[in-house]
Simulated scan of single mutants.
Amino acid sequence: MVPDDPAVPICSAKGCRASAVWVLAWNNPKLHTPERRKTWLACEEHREHLSQFLGVRGFLKDVVRFEEWEPVDEGPGGGSAADR
């Protein structure tokens, strides 16, 4: 399914154009401060695969339904936790 609205968030899996249902919050401790959260978005089909990819590397911090995700503002110049 391809979202008609470009504002509709889509899955981060390579080649997938499905609407995102999940937010996978992650952090690479070699690059990010402990409180920093990067995010990938996932459709139902790719949630497990993307979670495993991040999990085996020790990066996965949280998986939350998209409508429940509350991005954290990191202040000026810091971006937000919702950047992919």
Rank of each mutant, 00 (worst) to 15 (best):
P3Q: 09
H46C: 03
S12P: 01
P6M: 03
W26R: 07
R37S: 00
A82I: 00
E68M: 10
H32R: 07
V64E: 12
P71I: 01
G15L: 06
K61C: 02
T39N: 00
C11T: 02
A42H: 08
V56M: 10
E48K: 14
L50I: 11
V8F: 07
K38C: 05
L24C: 07
L50P: 04
E45M: 07
A20M: 06
A82W: 02
R84F: 02
A18V: 01
P6Y: 02
P71D: 01
V23A: 13
S51Q: 11
R36I: 05
V21A: 14
A20D: 06
K61L: 07
I10W: 08
C43S: 06
K14A: 15
V64Y: 07
S19C: 09
W26S: 05
P34S: 05
E35R: 10
W69T: 06
D62I: 03
G58P: 02
G75N: 10
L60W: 04
I10Y: 07
F66A: 14
V8G: 06
K14N: 14
V56I: 13
P3K: 10
N28D: 15
A81V: 00
P9M: 09
D73I: 04
E44M: 03
V8A: 13
T33H: 12
K61I: 02
D83N: 12
A20P: 04
R37H: 00
S80K: 11
H49D: 12
D5Y: 08
R65L: 13
V64A: 08
E74W: 14
L50A: 10
G15R: 05
P34N: 03
V64R: 10
Q52A: 12
P76F: 01
A82S: 11
G15P: 03
E74S: 12
S19A: 15
P9D: 10
R17E: 15
M1N: 13
T33K: 14
G78A: 12
L31K: 15
S80F: 03
F66S: 11
D83G: 09
C11M: 02
G75V: 11
L50W: 09
D83K: 13
D73M: 03
E68H: 12
G15K: 05
W40P: 00
F59T: 02
N28V: 10
V64C: 10
E68P: 00
L41A: 06
K61E: 04
D4K: 14
A42P: 03
F59K: 05
L60V: 05
D62Y: 01
P3M: 06
R57T: 02
S19P: 08
A25L: 08
Q52R: 15
H49S: 13
